[in-house]
Amino acid sequence: MTRIGYTMMTEQAGPRELVSHVVAAESAGFDFSVVSDHSFPWLAEQGHAPYAWTVLGAAAQATDTIPLMTYVTCPTFRYHPVVVAQKAATTQILSEGRFRLGLGSGENLNEHVVGAGWPAAHVRLEMLEEAVGIIRRMFAGEDVNHHGAHFDVANARLWDLPEEPPPIGVAVSGPRSCALAGRSADLVIATEPERELLDAFDEHGGAGKPRIGQLPVCYDPDREAAVTRAHEQFRWALGGWPVNAELPGPTSFDQASRRTRPEDVAEAVPCGDDVDAFVDAVRPYVAAGFTEVALVQIGGDRQLPFLKWAEAELLPALRNL
């Protein structure tokens, strides 16, 4: 049975609200949770970007059983891989083994803030693979010295190690990232229900490992209000990963999505309160072979109504997929 998760969207709610939302998601019966890790929202209308790792620490203490995960952290620009290893190990301890470290090659939107430039995609993947190797050595308790193509590490060590290191996931969008994930990850992460991505992951060593997808939804008893909100806050998502990874800020996303109509968003995102429409949107992920799907409820002020509805109607229906 596919596990259904809840997304703490840091772009659309403040830190205290995010923690209260994941507490409610645990109570509602979601199987796991993930959190985005941004320094900017995609659009100014979303209006937030708190520090995901502080939110994770608070969430680890406020919840009891729901697994936590980054979806995803870039360990190559804003954060050095040694720093990511320390943060992840500490979160694993605080959550008593409930944390998974989701990693990706990043978006210009978030990583530009440190002024390091934005190299080509193949360079970003090289950096990600080198970073994963450093993080694994840190998780193993080594005294790490490393001089690589992209990173230097001088006598680094984790003094507080969890009993079990966090599993590492890698986000994929094409053949190169799938090969990297198959070689170096414990699970694979994708935002599109494409079987080809999972097959490529399997071919490079990923067979039998978890595969996690993500799906935006917009619950509201008033479907027109849901469509309006989805268009206002998520029209950027129709641009596709190759474009979205390159844009430098909310103004760029606004301009790139200016011709996207509400009806275009409504075709891609289930809107309203029709349970069957939401189930049908999850179905392609199940058919493609995803073992877990994290839902993103659009609208920071509409999380609690969504969670109540999900507990009563949506989750029972999804359990029957």
Rank of each mutant, 00 (worst) to 15 (best):
F306Q: 07
I168R: 03
F139R: 00
G141V: 00
D274R: 08
A237Q: 11
V275A: 03
D37W: 07
Q86N: 15
E232Y: 00
A58L: 13
D152H: 11
G272Y: 07
V35W: 14
R100P: 12
V19K: 09
V265M: 01
C218F: 00
E17I: 02
A230Q: 01
H147P: 00
F253T: 05
P316K: 08
E263C: 01
L43P: 11
L103W: 07
V19R: 14
T191G: 14
T70P: 07
G57N: 14
D143M: 06
R157V: 01
E45M: 03
E246Y: 05
F139M: 04
G169A: 05
Y79A: 13
P162G: 12
A312C: 01
H150S: 03
L197H: 10
W236I: 10
E45G: 09
R261E: 15
G240V: 04
V282L: 04
V83Y: 13
H122T: 09
Y219R: 10
D199V: 07
P270W: 11
P175S: 02
G174I: 01
H122Y: 05
T191N: 10
A88D: 04
P305C: 03
R261P: 06
G182L: 11
L307H: 12
L109S: 12
G182C: 08
Q297G: 02
E192A: 09
L43M: 04
G272Q: 10
A181I: 10
R319V: 01
L321W: 15
I298S: 04
R258W: 08
N110W: 14
A268G: 04
P284H: 13
W118I: 00
G205F: 11
Y219I: 06
W309R: 10
G174N: 15
G213Q: 09
A230N: 10
T65Q: 12
A116L: 14
T73S: 07
P67H: 09
G206E: 03
A181P: 06
R235E: 09
L43W: 05
R259N: 13
N320P: 12
R211F: 14
H204A: 12
S27Q: 13
T91F: 07
H21L: 02
I134Y: 06
L215K: 11
L318A: 05
G213P: 05
T73V: 04
P216I: 08
G115W: 00
V279P: 01
M138V: 00
Q233Y: 04
F201K: 15
L68G: 05
R259C: 15
T70N: 08
T191R: 15
I168Q: 06
S252I: 09
E126N: 13
T10R: 04
P193F: 13
R259A: 11
H231I: 02
E164S: 08
I134P: 15
D160V: 00
M127H: 02
R98S: 05
V35T: 13
F201Q: 06
G104M: 12
G133H: 11
D222P: 15
R98Y: 13
Y219C: 12
R16H: 08
V144I: 04
V72K: 08
V123R: 15
A281E: 09
T191Q: 05
N244S: 10
V296M: 10
H48C: 14
D37Y: 02
A294W: 07
F40C: 13
E17D: 01
F32W: 11
P250Q: 05
E96H: 12
F30D: 15
L180S: 09
M127S: 06
I298G: 08
P305L: 07
T2P: 12
A156H: 09
V113T: 02
A89Q: 03
L318W: 07
P119G: 05
R235Y: 14
F253L: 04
